[in-house]
Write a protein that binds this DNA or RNA. Structure first.
Length: 833
RNA sequence: GCCCGGAUGGCGAAAUUGGCAGACGCAGCGGACUUAAAAUCCGCAGACCGCAAGGUCGUGGGGGUUCAAGUCCCCCUCCGGGCACCA
């Protein structure tokens, strides 16, 4: 009875046992110092928000990273594999409102719960380097960076139109507004408000952020494209049109200055500064402009700005084209964006689709100024190509578009009515949040000295621990007098602290540097240590961070480099974005009711089976369809491994020599060959392709082969040293995917030092090579037979073998073999007529 | 509209350079073991025709290149994601 029990694979017994043993060995997953002499490898999964529960997306993300980390440890690398918590943010305040729990308490207990889940999953993190962004020893460095950036002119304050989410009761960055809605509240329309805000000058690095993308070859093309679009660099020309009957200039931005002789109107955004002046005396016009503004606002709110119907009103005023003095009407239009370019455009209906649509609607003239080279008759309008020559453009006629652009820019510069410019879609990063649970901005406002930075020796500006969270608007910190009231660091007089906190994306912009030196209380990190570990060798996370986090952290890296803290230009060498976890055709979410709890899976099948299924069900970059039956299947497989290894472990342990020294023929050779093929396949995949689904499949094949030979193995047909190599290697191959079972079986096989420090098996190409091959024989491209030939057989031998085959002979009898194609090692094809 | 992915059995998927389509797993069917069941083990399994031997068709659709196409080229459809009056 006792024996029978022992033969059952019982993850509920094995896994907690190893979890405890690992917890008792804090050095196990710890990185070694730079002096270790080993090559370094920094593998990082994106740190989670401590919501309280891991979801399957986390499990998948961390299973990928942990498999890689374990593999690299076994390959002898000095591995840094840390974990932390993106612990500031609004949900903690919402929870405080709902449950009357302080945000700090709520957050820290969630962290404890999720950490337990991670440990139960057997994820190999070095908890000594854990980073929790809501603790003062971390966020003081956010403040420190803020001050350094302030000194460098990278932080500034201005009153501006900002995105306001009524639900969050705070400002949002542009990056946090999706289709006019809040990124956290899909149903909540974002409002525009005028507020004094702190900004990070990310646009100062726009060009470098863009250029750097070309060098990030280890990043998915998709992410690079998204960032390129987001930065939205556009080269063009700014040109001043002169207001008729006034001195004002109307500066327009265009990427097609070569078409300027075709401009038949100037279009202003409803918010354009000039509009108010032009409409001041005309209430009727004023009302119409208000309508345009309203349409634009509505379209922005519903997210389909692109589908807005174009409306415009003529102002009755005119402007002069600076190149030829031509008089064109000034309109106000709802499709002109105030915050892009100069908020004013020249309308060239002959060569711009939108302008064409607008001009057609309102009966404005449409003039041809570009024509395909060599064509003598007018071209059909609108003609949108940039390949052509100028017509109807006075002295510039006959120039190519490209040449005309250069020439016209020069003329504008000389005439001081315009210049070549670059415009970006990217805006500066607004970081002020009117929330409590975030990093206090380290500035004070003195009645005498104005804005004064908090000196370094007064950091951190600590968040008051006890605060009543209410739904009142405005910054909660503003209602805490003992926080607000302070003295001016400059004059010692009374002053008020800044009460806004920083966007939580500040926290995650540099957290991965802190891991390298997490306990440092004198600096954010030691530059020498960071230099050793950076850039991150492999960063793994969801594609949803392609713009927000991944652009901010690239920016931060460049700023830190210019502050002299680091030497790398980019944070991560390689980025991997894993697919989503799907169930029943939809992304797992509470609202869809299709959430599978990792805890349930672990309780039912164990951590190994849960993790291994997450790697087996699909390649990591694709979406994964969660099917619980599949987890059960992986669990059955692990049980099979367990029975097989425990059954033959005594035999393997009895081996007194290495497998190389024993005779390798028959079954032993066959199994060793399969083993070495499997090692080669998996090792190759870890090198970058990462199709862990096929790695697991390959291990299954190996186990199937061993299982099929069970009777012969039991009869002792395979010598002990070979069994030892087979089983040990099997366990080592399994170790990155099923760490608990591997640890247990490694011990069972008498392996010492723990499986994580055991060297990754090496494939012997001589052993892996087949000595006989099956070659498909086709006739006119159709498979008719398979012939066996020696591995190195020359084409003649293969051809002869193919022709000798019975089926081939019967198919070719009485016919002419016109041609024989032999691809050695691959195929034979007979062309028969 | 533009830019990325993707479409292969009942299901998740595999095929790394153009060379046996469907590895591996799930679900299914049959068998062994068992009084029985569970567990385990062995076997079958793309579709259609056929008792069988065997044959025909088959990787979203249409065309093409090639001795040979899931894979390369052209056109189209559908699904997922991103961007979108950005002048």
């Amino acid at each position: 009875m006792a024996e029978e029990k022992e033969l059952r694979y019982d993850p509920a017994a094995i896994e907690p046992k190893w979890q405890q043993r690992w917890a008792a060995d804090p050095k196990l997953y710890a990185a070694e110092p730079a002096t270790s002499g080993k090559p370094k490898y920094y593998v990082l999964e994106m740190l989670p928000y401590p919501s309280g529960q891991l979801h399957m997306g986390h499990v998948r993300n961390y299973s990928i990273g942990d498999a890689l980390a374990r593999h690299m440890w076994m390959r002898g690398y000095n591995v840094l594999h840390p974990m932390g918590w993106d612990a500031f943010g609004l949900p903690a305040e919402n929870a405080a409102l709902k449950n009357n729990t302080p945000p700090r308490e709520w957050t820290l207990s969630n962290i404890a719960a999720m950490k337990r889940q991670m440990q139960r999953l057997g994820l190999g993190y070095d908890w000594a380097t854990e980073v929790t962004t809501c603790l003062p020893d971390y966020y003081r460095w956010n403040q420190w960076f803020f001050l350094r950036m302030y000194e460098k002119g990278l932080v500034y304050r201005k009153k501006s139109k900002v995105n306001w989410c009524p639900e969050c009761a705070t400002v949002l960055a542009n990056e946090q507004v999706i289709d006019g809605r809040c990124w956290r509240h899909e149903d909540t329309l974002v409002e525009q408000r005028d507020l004094e805000q702190w900004f990070f000058r990310i646009t100062a690095y726009a060009d470098e952020l863009l250029a750097g993308l070309d060098k990030l070859e280890g990043w998915p093309e998709k992410v690079r494209t998204m960032q390129r679009n987001w930065i939205g660099r556009s080269e063009g020309t700014e040109v001043d049109f002169t207001l008729e009957g006034g001195t004002e200039k109307i500066r327009v931005f265009t990427t097609r200055v070569d078409t300027i002789f075709g401009a038949t109107s100037v279009q202003l955004a409803p918010q354009h500064a000039l509009v108010a002046a032009l409409t001041a005396t005309d209430p009727d016009l004023n009302e119409k402009v208000a309508e345009l503004l309203d349409q634009q606002k509505k379209a922005r709110e519903t997210g389909d700005l692109g589908a807005i119907e174009k409306h415009g009103v003529p102002t009755g005023r005119f402007a002069a084209n600076p190149y030829n003095g031509q008089r064109v009407p000034i309109w106000v239009a709802n499709y002109i964006l105030a915050d892009y370019g100069t908020g004013a455009i020249m309308s060239v209906p002959g060569h711009d689709e939108r302008d064409f649509e607008f001009a057609t609607k309102y009966g404005l003239p449409i003039v041809e100024v570009i024509r395909p080279a060599g064509q003598t008759t007018p071209v059909e309008l609108p003609f949108l190509s940039e390949e052509g020559v100028l017509v109807n453009s006075g002295e510039y006629d006959g120039l190519s578009c490209e040449a005309a652009e250069k020439k016209l820019q020069e003329v504008a510069m000389r005439g001081a009515f315009g210049e070549a410019t670059v415009t970006y879609r990217l805006k500066d990063w607004g970081v002020s949040r009117q929330r409590y649970w975030g990093t206090p901005i380290p500035m004070v406002n003195c009645e005498r000295d104005g804005l004064v930075p908090v000196p370094d020796d007064q950091l951190p500006v600590v968040l008051p621990p006890q605060i009543e969270i209410t739904q009142q608007g405005g910054s909660p910190l503003g209602r805490v007098p003992e926080f607000v009231n302070t003295t001016c660091p400059k004059c010692g007089g009374p002053a008020r602290r800044e009460t806004d906190t920083m966007d939580t994306f500040v926290d995650s912009s540099w957290y991965f540097y802190r891991y390298t030196d997490a306990k440092n209380s004198n600096a954010p990190f030691d530059p020498k240590v960071a230099q050793y570990w950076f850039p991150i060798d492999q960063y793994i996370g969801g594609v949803e961070h392609a713009i927000l986090h991944l652009i901010y952290s690239r920016y931060w890296t460049k700023v830190m480099r210019d502050l002299g803290l680091i030497v790398n230009d980019e944070p991560a060498q390689r980025l991997f974005t894993q697919g989503m976890v799907i169930k029943d055709g939809a992304k797992m979410s509470k609202s869809k009711g299709n959430v599978v709890s990792p805890d349930d899976m672990v309780a039912r099948y164990g951590a190994d089976a849960t993790r291994m299924y997450a790697l087996f069900a699909a390649p990591p970059d694709r979406d994964l369809d969660w099917q619980e039956d599949g987890v059960a299947g992986v669990s059955r497989f692990l049980a099979r491994v367990w029975r097989l290894v425990t059954k033959y472990a005594p035999l393997a342990r009895s081996a007194s020599s290495e497998a190389q020294n024993s005779v390798q023929t028959g079954l032993a050779l066959k199994l060793l060959r399969k083993l070495h093929q499997t090692i080669a396949k998996i090792t190759l995949d870890f090198g970058g392709r990462w199709h862990f689904n096929t790695c697991v499949a390959a291990i299954m094949e190996l186990v199937n082969d061993l299982q099929a030979a069970d009777a012969q193995l039991a009869a002792g047909e395979v010598p002990a040293p070979v069994m030892r190599e087979l089983l040990r290697s099997l366990v080592l191959l399994l170790a990155p995917f099923a760490p608990f079972l591997a640890a247990e079986l490694w011990e069972e096989l008498g392996g010492d030092g723990g499986v994580l420090r055991a060297p990754w098996p090496k494939s012997d190409p001589g052993l892996a090579k087949e000595d006989e091959l099956e070659i498909p024989v086709q006739i006119n491209g159709k498979l008719v037979a398979v012939v066996r030939v020696a591995a190195g057989a020359d084409p003649k031998t293969i051809e002869a073998a193919a022709l000798a085959d019975e089926k081939v002979q019967s198919r070719t009898a009485g016919k002419t073999v016109a041609k024989i194609i032999v691809v050695p090692g691959r195929a034979v094809n007979l062309v028969v007529k």
